[in-house]
Simulated assay, not measured.
Amino acid sequence: MLLITMIEHGGLGLNLKIRVCITIIAATFSPIAYADEIDLKSINIPGVSALKAVDFLVDRPIEPRATYVVVALGKGPEGSVVSINTRYSNASGWVYTTRAVKCSSGQMRTLGSGETVNGMLKSKSDPSWGPLVSGSSATQVAEIACTQSGTRLAGVR
């Protein structure tokens, strides 16, 4: 629709070939265009329940070429909050990660990670809980997960 309006009104003064290229480039490099669709009903992670779809962009100025999005939240083992997030970068492509976070102690455990949703689901989880580190992307995702579950993230190193 935008392209049609630009053609009818002369747009930005660009010739038609350039306008078409701009439209194609924007569609081609949009991270959302390449994301695996995450069907939460088909995701079965041991110890995880009540996954619900969300859409929270993670602000990571330290990684200007990467885009992190929290796409699902749920309940996990030992009273933890579970998040599924995506990371996209032109340099490294997609990564899907599921983590459980104990909000009161700042402990986390990666339940799966992979370049596809299927790869994430097939990967092995961390055997034990570890500390969240201030400034890390995992901590930023944990802050979103804890806040959305109605608790405050504490104990971050």
Rank of each mutant, 00 (worst) to 15 (best):
T5K: 13
M6D: 10
I7C: 04
E8D: 10
E8K: 14
H9S: 14
G13N: 11
N15V: 12
K17A: 15
V20R: 14
V20E: 12
I22D: 08
I22H: 08
T23A: 14
I25T: 13
A26C: 12
T28C: 13
I32K: 14
I32S: 12
A33H: 11
E37Q: 13
L40H: 07
S42L: 12
S42A: 15
A50H: 08
K52Q: 15
F56M: 10
V58C: 02
D59Y: 13
D59Q: 11
R60H: 03
R60T: 15
P61G: 03
R65G: 11
T67K: 13
V69Y: 01
V70N: 05
A72P: 00
L73T: 01
L73W: 00
G76E: 00
G76W: 00
G79V: 05
S80D: 02
V81M: 03
V81R: 05
S83R: 05
N85C: 04
T86K: 00
R87E: 15
Y88I: 01
Y88R: 08
A91I: 11
S92D: 14
G93L: 09
G93E: 02
V95C: 06
Y96S: 04
Y96K: 02
A100E: 02
A100N: 02
V101R: 00
G106H: 01
Q107P: 00
M108K: 10
T110G: 07
T110K: 15
S113L: 09
G114P: 00
G114A: 10
E115T: 15
E115A: 13
S123W: 03
K124C: 01
S125P: 09
S125Y: 01
D126C: 05
P127T: 05
S128M: 09
P131Q: 11
P131F: 11
P131A: 12
S134T: 12
G135S: 06
S136T: 14
S136F: 06
A138T: 10
Q140R: 15
C146I: 10
T147C: 04
Q148T: 09
S149H: 08
T151A: 09
L153N: 09
G155R: 04
G155H: 07
V156I: 14
V156Q: 06
V156S: 09
